[in-house]
């Protein structure tokens, strides 16, 4: 039983990280109808900014985190300006390709500036964690779960209960209609980019102390997050969260009870199964073929 709970705990922790990155994916899919391949690099950049703030500028932890997230939100807008804006009338594919270009560019620029040696990022708490009933509660995994839940709740409140959230939703649903209603569509899209980058940064800052901070850290997370997105339902916000958690738990259990070396395969087997049996995912709506 202790083993089961231990696996569930770490699986949920990793899953929460997938969920946060997946959420960033979904928001951009909704707002701009693009798949951002550099989503994982938002996490990587966030983690490096925190390393920079803590180790180079010796800022206090809370200040460094707030600064990191703010800077990443600004970066999200710049990112939109560079990859999305010039190509916005050319359809989704050119933008997707330009995000792949951005991914290569960002990873190599960090490699050039920071070098290849992984960096150590201290956790939010000094204590590594505690044991309850034979289950080790890693303090960082607890932080991840708490932060992810809080963010999801906050996002729900903003999206459903505020005018700003409703405007963003309206923009996502129909840009033309929204702009006829006087909603500043461009501002809403840029805001979504900023939020998506900030979410990525939160994921990076949370996972950095566990996986260490390296140039390639975003790549595998983003791949799993995208898989989570398909499982949950392409473009579905609750789907991103549930899909991420499900994937994290499934791969941890698959590794423990079936085979460790094929851990990564489970994630993609589940995706294949969903694509075959329920292509719209858990929360997705069936999209009727347009005449």
């Amino acid at each position: 039983m202790a083993m089961f709970l231990q696996l569930l705990f770490t699986g949920m922790g990793i899953g929460a990280v997938y969920a946060l990155v997946s959420l960033g994916f979904v928001l951009l899919i909704c707002a701009a109808n693009i798949v951002n391949f550099a989503q994982g690099d938002f996490a990587m950049l966030g983690a490096y900014l925190l390393v920079l703030g803590l180790n180079v500028f010796s800022l206090p932890y809370p200040v460094a985190i707030v600064l990191t997230i703010l800077l990443m939100a600004i970066f999200g807008v710049l990112f939109a300006g560079a990859t999305y804006w010039p190509l916005r009338f050319r359809g989704a594919l050119p933008v997707i390709i330009s995000t792949i270009g951005a991914q290569i560019f960002l990873e190599n620029i960090v490699l050039y500036l920071y070098g290849p040696v992984p960096q150590v990022l201290p956790g939010v708490f000094n204590s590594p964690g505690f044991t309850v009933g034979g289950v080790f509660m890693d303090s960082q995994y607890l932080t991840i779960l708490a932060t992810a839940s809080l963010l999801v709740l906050l996002q729900y409140l903003v999206f459903e209960k505020t005018l700003l959230g409703k405007k963003i939703q309206a923009t996502n649903q129909d840009k033309e209609m929204a702009s006829l209603l006087g909603i500043p569509v461009v501002f809403m899209i840029l805001l979504t980019f900023a939020y998506s980058a900030a979410l990525g940064a939160v994921a990076g800052v949370l996972v950095g102390p566990i996986l260490f901070v390296s140039v390639g850290m975003g790549g595998s997370i983003a791949l799993k997050a995208f898989a989570a997105n398909i499982i949950g339902g392409y473009g579905s916000i609750p789907g991103a969260i549930v899909g991420g958690l499900l994937l994290g738990v499934a791969e941890t259990f698959g590794a423990a009870y079936i085979s460790v070396p094929y851990k990564d395969a489970f994630a993609f087997l589940i995706v294949l199964a969903f694509l075959a049996v329920r292509p719209q995912g858990l929360f997705g709506e069936k999209v009727a073929e347009k005449a």
């Binding site: 770490t10 990793i14 595998s220 997370i221 590794a255 423990a256 460790v260 851990k263 990564d264």
Partner: peptide
Amino acid sequence: ADQTADFTP
């Protein structure tokens, strides 16, 4: 496998 993010199992 290489680059296994989590060694709990």
